[in-house]
């Protein structure tokens, strides 16, 4: 199992949980597992083509998957995956 850090805007899918567990050999598989456990969350992370949405970043153990193997980035037990979206507020 990997631990997935859930950002505030997506916590409505995880009953408010800030960190949840999911499994999969790659980031893509992990996102699919996440969606099985928390239906609807995938479409907030990936677009209709299955690519990570351009205002969301995924980090595996602090490394941006865009500079690794993107959705094919391998995941192993104990990894930490962070979902980091752009957030708007400030005024």
């Amino acid at each position: 199992m990997a631990q997935v850090r859930i950002p505030t805007p997506l916590r409505k899918y995880t009953a408010g949980a800030e960190a949840v567990e999911a499994e999969g050999g790659t980031v893509a598989a992990l996102v699919s597992d996440l969606d099985r456990r928390y239906p609807g969350i995938r479409e907030r992370i990936c677009d209709e083509k299955g690519e990570v949405r351009r205002f969301v970043n995924l980090f595996v153990n602090g490394e941006d998957i865009r500079f690794l193997k993107q959705l094919d980035t391998p995941i192993k037990a104990g990894d930490e995956v962070s979902i980091v979206p752009a957030i708007a507020g400030g005024a």
Partner: peptide, 28 residues
């Protein structure tokens, strides 16, 4: 470089729309 394009407005509510804790903006 980090966020390649803006999300649709409905996906990123503003403080006015979604709320914000005063001390958090003060800290930031």
């Amino acid at each position: 470089c980090v966020f390649e394009e803006p999300p649709p407005p409905e996906e990123t509510p503003s403080c006015q729309e979604a709320g914000v804790l005063g001390p958090v903006v003060a800290l930031a």
